[in-house]
């Protein structure tokens, strides 16, 4: 299967910002890592156990800003157009700006094309927009396999797409992060923005899932 495209924009941005270090830990991030290091060395905690606890709360972490971006794009064609042309400005107009001034690009699912964002392992993941990444998403095998065999990876997550649907894989760069705008589910004509945002899952914004259907539980 060679119909899958891997979009790698790394080379587009290399003519500037040579000294720009994208990875940065805030004082608190670094302090928490320091505590984790010491406590792990002393055998008092196991990072896997910590991940498991964090995972319990993963949907409670971070503002779900991306869900509102998606809901607004579904309701307002003008906003969707703006997202296509300049997602950074469109998302910033809602008050959601990245702390590191990263650029966002919105990729739209269509009946013909499904988009999948590959997470980076460093600190670049736009969790403020997308929510906390799932633990599996940070695993190196996921990243490499998603590029080679996106259809197989999606199947493992319970998302089987028709063979005719093309899958595009987007790999974020130091300056460019992606949000998937899933297709609006059927039967949602009567919903307001809040109601629509409730259907937008984190996984649907990274392309490993689809939005919830109306009436589907939490």
């Amino acid at each position: 299967m060679t119909s899958e495209d891997t979009m790698q924009d790394h080379n587009h941005h290399h003519d500037h910002d040579h000294d720009h270090h994208d990875n940065h830990f805030s004082d608190m991030q670094a302090r928490v890592k320091a505590l984790e290091t010491v406590l792990t060395q002393k055998g008092l905690i196991d990072p896997a156990a910590i991940d498991a606890i964090v995972e319990t709360y993963e949907t409670k972490i971070g503002p779900r800003n991306g869900a509102h971006v998606v809901a607004k794009a579904w309701r307002e064609p003008d906003f969707a157009d703006w997202l296509v042309r300049d997602a950074t400005a469109a998302i910033a107009s809602l008050g959601y700006t990245g702390r590191q001034g990263e650029h966002m690009r919105a990729v739209f699912n269509t009946p013909e094309t499904h988009n999948l964002v590959v997470c980076t392992l460093c600190s670049c993941y736009p969790w403020a927009v997308l929510g906390l990444p799932p633990v599996w998403y940070k695993a190196p095998p996921y990243r490499s396999r998603a590029v080679i065999d996106p259809r197989g990876v999606l199947q493992e997550f319970g998302l089987t797409l028709p063979e005719t649907k093309r899958i595009r894989v987007w790999d974020s760069t130091a300056e460019l992060r992606y949000i998937v705008i899933p297709e609006r589910p059927a039967g949602t004509e009567g919903l307001d923005e809040e109601g629509l945002a409730d259907l937008v899952t984190r996984d649907s914004m990274i392309g490993t899932g689809l939005p919830k259907l109306v009436g589907e539980g939490q």
Binding site: A30, V38, C122, A174
Partner: peptide, 30 residues
């Protein structure tokens, strides 16, 4: 007495240097 304030401070700074030194797309390791 599990650790000391100075050890925590040192490790905190070490993690910050590690983050800056890590290329984009790689896991940040101490």
């Amino acid at each position: 007495s599990i650790t000391s304030e100075s050890q925590l401070d040192q490790l905190t700074r070490s993690w910050q240097r590690a983050a800056v030194a890590t290329p984009h797309g790689q896991p940040i390791l101490l």
